[in-house]
């Protein structure tokens, strides 16, 4: 049992090295952005340490600089980050049934797009220690990147930052595409999702919708649609 937890932790740690690198690049620019909006490196770093959410933090930084009300900041975070509710629900169902409340509360600390992505596609049942290992690798990248960005501004050469900026997306692809080899219908799901996402970004009436809302809307609509036209069989559950 102990050994199994340890193995899951180490696997999460290993799988999340690219996340750490990707986070470093993204949060570095977030740190630059925070200092440009008048936040200190300590405030920017603390925000990253407590939130781990790029879109939410970017919105928060802008609203803090604008001296918006506490309530509107809370609401904006709830809306932009609502997708994590769906992600946590998906993880909860994958999780080993006897997972302790303490581990459940701990792994909730970082349910990010990326950590969700790699943990959601682990073989069920999911060991929560996988997520703990994952955040142990990814979080320092996120927090240190933010602080360095806030302190040092543009020290990373722009061509390096640019090359690193595709890392997160390549990881998403590496998570989403392999299961297609065993379930061809997922190719339809992925293509439809990307097509609709693209439509949202080019159709004028829809392009004003924020990133967080767009992710929520399309995820709910398409997941429900596919759940109706193609409900999963019992054996699909572990993918």
């Amino acid at each position: 049992m102990q050994l199994e937890n340890r193995k899951s932790f180490i696997k999460g740690l290993k799988d999340s090295v690219p996340i750490m690198l990707g986070y470093f690049a993204v949060s570095f620019t977030l740190g630059i952005n925070a200092s440009a909006h008048g936040l200190s490196w300590l405030e920017a770093g603390l925000m990253s340490f407590l939130n781990h959410t790029s879109a939410g933090q970017a919105a928060g930084i802008a609203m803090i600089a604008n001296d918006d009300s506490y309530l509107s900041v809370a609401l904006s975070q709830a809306v932009i980050n609502l997708r994590y509710l769906l992600m946590s629900a998906a993880l909860a169902l994958k999780l080993k049934k006897d997972t302790s409340l303490g581990l459940r509360l701990s792994m909730s600390y970082v349910v990010s797009d990326e950590i969700f992505g790699i943990s959601a596609l682990q073989k069920a049942p999911l060991n929560g220690w996988y997520n703990i290992g994952s955040m142990a690798a990814a979080s320092p990248g996120w927090v240190l990147g933010t602080i360095l960005g806030a302190v040092m501004g543009n020290v990373l050469r722009p061509d390096i930052t640019m090359a690193l900026s595709v890392a997160l997306y390549s990881m998403f692809i590496a998570v989403v595409f392999p299961p297609i080899r065993h379930n061809a219908f997922l190719a339809v799901v992925v293509s439809a999702s990307m097509a609709l996402s693209y439509a949202f970004s080019v159709i004028k009436a829809l392009s004003g919708i924020s990133y967080g809302i767009k992710v929520i809307l399309i995820t709910i609509a398409l997941s429900a649609f596919f759940a109706i036209i193609r409900p999963i069989e019992e054996q699909d559950n572990e993918a």
Partner: peptide, 19 residues
């Protein structure tokens, strides 16, 4: 609901990747 949650990661990650 099980089917819905099965599709959530595929849809959300695809949406976040492209474009």
């Amino acid at each position: 609901l099980r089917s819905f949650l099965y599709y959530v990661p595929f849809v959300s990650l695809s949406v976040m990747t492209f474009p």
